[in-house]
Amino acid sequence: MCRGVLSCFCLLDHSQYDLSSTTFSPDGRVFQIEYAQKAVENSGTAVGVSCKDGVVMAVEKVVVSKMLVPGTMRRAHLVDHHSGLVISGLISDGRQLATRARDECSSYKSVYDSAIPGHVLAERLANFAHVYTLYAYVRPFGCAALLGAHDDTNGYQLYLVEPSGVSYRYFGAAVGKGKQAAKTALEKLDFKSLTCREAVKELAKIIVDVHDEAKDKLYELEMCWVCEESKNMSQLVPQDVVDEARKAAEAAQDDDSDMDDDE
């Protein structure tokens, strides 16, 4: 009887369906997961490509104070010798994903004595994220991870792991604030012929282009790659390479806007 009253109460208030990830709405949606994805969409853009000789990921880091030491608020994380990820969304949630990815890498290694293949890592990481969508006592992760990896059988791989717990393999993927524009730009690339060195420039250009100058003035560009040049090791792209690519992208952008002005 008491139950009847309660459910009646809930049905009256439509918005009661979006308070927990253990609640479906009448049309089959889980709002809390969508809201978690919203947290990602408010965050700095992250893009990644899997190309000819490697996989490269880039992320836009909004700098919150000029007194910050450059490079702090890391959004790119290495998870094993051959794999790394960049985070879009809540930084602190992202670190938990990175930590979990590291644990998966080392546990796979201790069982099989070989490096974890990219698809296995992506699946396990997605499973981890998914578990946080199933119980009322936790919340979904407010971040998405672009995961880059290399193994001898599958070559270079790029995965996107989302708060919902889905993960797909991509040639080019984008998440965060500027993902729509970034995706459009990615679609123009020829991933089969693109080299990592070129990809660094392309990604820098995408981030520079989608960056909203009006909203966030200062930002850093952080990049991570696993490629032939890095001997298939995961590493942050050297700062001078990133800076150069960013400068070139900014110069190109200025030229464009100059031309626009002329017209």
Partner: peptide
């Protein structure tokens, strides 16, 4: 090796 990997990924 596991310990050194942990050092590597701390980066």
């Amino acid at each position: 090796d596991a310990e050194m990997t942990a050092q590597y990924v701390a980066n």
